[in-house]
Nucleic acid binder design. Structure first.
Length: 590
DNA sequence: GCCGTTTTCGGCCCGACTGTTTTCAGTCG
């Protein structure tokens, strides 16, 4: 079985081989293979599943030929066309491509020069050659590049065991620290976080920052003097880049205020959005860059101080950063048909809250009392909320004991409703395990003490797809089971999601008025944005919840909102943005 | 090799920075 990332690597190897064989001749094949590799790598759906559903060409950059190659790859484990392209490349060539600052040319030159043979030792051998001063004399290399090779491989070895991408709050913290630092310089007029952090992608590689200033030199000077840097990676007139601890980069770009709009647009990306946007502009005879817009045949570059004016000059309505991912947003902007995305202000309740109310749960309890969480919800302006502690543990309780615990809790929630009735409606919910056979962890005699419940998977994560799908559908089949909580169960960077026939689950949810949760915990963000998009096409509705185990977690809602925005959802799609009566009707009567 | 409101051919984003050069090639985003 090949993973998407392994397939992407294979395609990049093909592109690199083409580059060595004849870059000019294969120029556009090289681009095509790289584009296909990007698309596959960033796709959450396995290639074999695309093939199974015959939808491979829905991926941008996968056409007729690539489709055939991938089918051959999944079926036989190899592609004869690729083998012909790759057969003359030494195997020691490929590991070098993983090293930052190495491309195909440099890698091939060194491997050929030293006649490296072994892919397992080539990195060490190359460092050895550099230390022995055998590289500086090669044509096109020198003392500095010899040193750079040692540094690049060493840093690669240090960083390779770490998770290479950060979860959002971690990256935000790095960015905020730098923003505070930059604001100390009087040369800085405006400063923004851009790149994937501005687009609120679920994980962040590098932190990108833009500054508006009439004195770029001073700004770069100040930036490069950042006390928490490991070293300066590059330093130019309008941009610079720092390495900070953990192998992360902070990249900076500077433009004067009157060109800040095009800089924001350029540096926010995504790369795929920008490429598409520039192709779109070219057809209108316009060439785009961070400096502005150049009309064909003209030498002047028109400046735009805001992104709105930049997009408007292309005949497009403003595109929110979260959806700049080449997912059809440019077409929609051209037709002035972009959806009005959900915002944090639209949210009227949180439905996945763990208090410390003692019901001897199967998993971790919350830290705060029900009252504390209710008061926090009121301060957030919510109109309704639900407590959904984990069910009492199955092994330690008989079914009547569980019912008794839930009855007591129900009375407690009734008291709370009485106390806070002017401000908020509190529902009695529960997060109920779906056991491995599809049964749920509470008995029907407990249902009376619940307005509704969430179901979720907390065990037996690796089951065959058919069995797992059946398990989820069975768990959701109870009338009061309304929400599938953290549906994929993934933990970013730690645990992949479960294997499920999502189309089947989404169809079931749509037909039976069940909701998918968008869990806001930054390590979860589950459903992921791409599956939210997929679910939306089935007509599925969503609950954005925090899964809070303490009052301060309740502010994580913003990350779930980001996921929902990236999936182009509107308030109509998000149940907990609905007015109370409509929402109540869905929860209790649908 | 991909793609389409200039559609089945003939295009394909745009520029910064570095090191090794003396005008440019390679890499990156």
């Amino acid at each position: 079985m090949m993973t998407n990332s392994q397939i992407a690597t294979l395609l990049r190897h093909v592109a690199a081989s083409y580059t060595i064989q004849n870059e000019a001749k294969f120029r556009f094949q090289i681009l095509a293979y790289q584009k296909a590799a990007d698309a596959i790598e960033s796709s959450p759906t396995e290639i074999k599943d695309y093939i199974a559903s015959n939808s491979l060409d829905s991926l941008p950059g996968i056409g007729e030929s690539m489709k055939k190659y991938l089918e051959e790859l999944i079926e036989t484990g190899k592609v004869s066309h690729f083998e012909v392209i790759l057969k003359d490349m030494p195997e020691a060539f490929f590991p070098l491509l993983d090293i930052p600052s190495f491309g195909p040319k440099k890698a091939f030159k060194l491997v050929s020069y030293f006649k490296f043979k072994d892919k397992n030792t080539v990195l060490d051998e190359l460092i050895e050659k550099a230390r022995n001063n055998e590289i500086a004399s090669i044509e096109g290399f020198g003392e500095k590049s010899q040193e750079d090779i040692i540094q690049a491989i060493t840093e690669f070895h240090q960083g390779v065991n770490k998770n290479s991408r950060m979860v959002l709050p971690f990256a935000q913290e790095i960015a905020d620290k730098m923003l505070d630092y930059l604001k100390k310089s009087s040369a800085v007029e405006k400063v923004y976080t851009l790149g994937s952090l501005r687009r609120q992608k679920e994980t962040i590689g590098d932190v990108d920052i833009a500054v508006a200033s009439l004195h770029p030199k001073e700004v770069i000077e100040h930036f490069c003097a950042y006390p928490y840097k490991d070293r300066i990676i590059e330093r130019g007139e309008a941009s610079a880049s720092l390495l900070i601890s953990g192998g992360k980069h902070i990249d900076l770009m500077v433009q004067p205020p009157d060109r800040f709009g095009s800089l924001l647009q350029h540096f926010t990306g995504s790369k795929e959005h920008n490429v598409k946007l520039r192709e779109f502009a070219l057809k209108k005879g316009l060439s785009l860059s961070e400096y502005g817009i150049k009309r064909k045949g003209s030498d002047t570059v028109d400046a735009y101080s805001t992104e709105e004016s930049f997009y408007s000059a292309l005949g497009l309505s403003y595109i929110e950063p979260e959806i700049r991912e080449n997912i059809g947003e440019i077409d929609l902007a051209e037709k002035n048909n972009l959806p009005k995305l959900i915002t944090l202000n639209d949210i009227k309740g949180d439905f996945h809250l763990h208090s410390n109310y003692p019901i001897e749960p199967s998993h971790d309890m919350g830290r705060n009392s029900m009252e504390e969480m209710v008061e926090n919800a009121i301060s957030l302006g919510y109109q309704y909320m639900g407590f959904s502690e984990h069910n009492p543990s199955v092994s330690k309780h008989t079914s009547p004991q569980t019912a008794l615990l839930l009855e007591k809790r129900y009375k407690k929630i009734e008291q709370i409703n009485e106390k806070y009735k002017k401000d908020i409606r509190v529902y009695s919910l529960l997060e109920v395990d779906i056991l491995s056979n599809g049964d749920i962890a509470i008995d029907i005699i407990a249902f009376d003490y619940l307005d509704a419940f969430l179901v979720s998977i907390h065990s037996s994560f690796s089951m065959p797809r058919d069995k797992m799908t059946e398990r989820i559908l069975k768990g959701l089949s109870h009338p009061k089971a309304k929400i599938l909580s953290h549906p994929t169960t993934r933990l970013i960077g730690k645990r992949p999601g479960i294997d499920v026939d999502w189309d089947k689950v989404f169809d079931f949810c749509h037909k039976n008025n069940k909701a998918m949760e968008i869990n806001s915990f930054p390590q979860r963000l589950d459903l992921p944005d791409s599956l939210v998009r997929q679910a939306k096409t089935h007509g599925v509705k969503f609950m954005i919840d925090t899964d809070s185990h303490a009052t301060e977690h309740m502010s994580l809602m913003r990350y779930g909102i980001s996921v929902a925005r990236r999936a182009m959802t509107t308030p109509d799609d998000i149940l907990n943005s609905w007015e109370y009566n409509k929402f109540n009707d869905w929860l209790l009567n649908s």
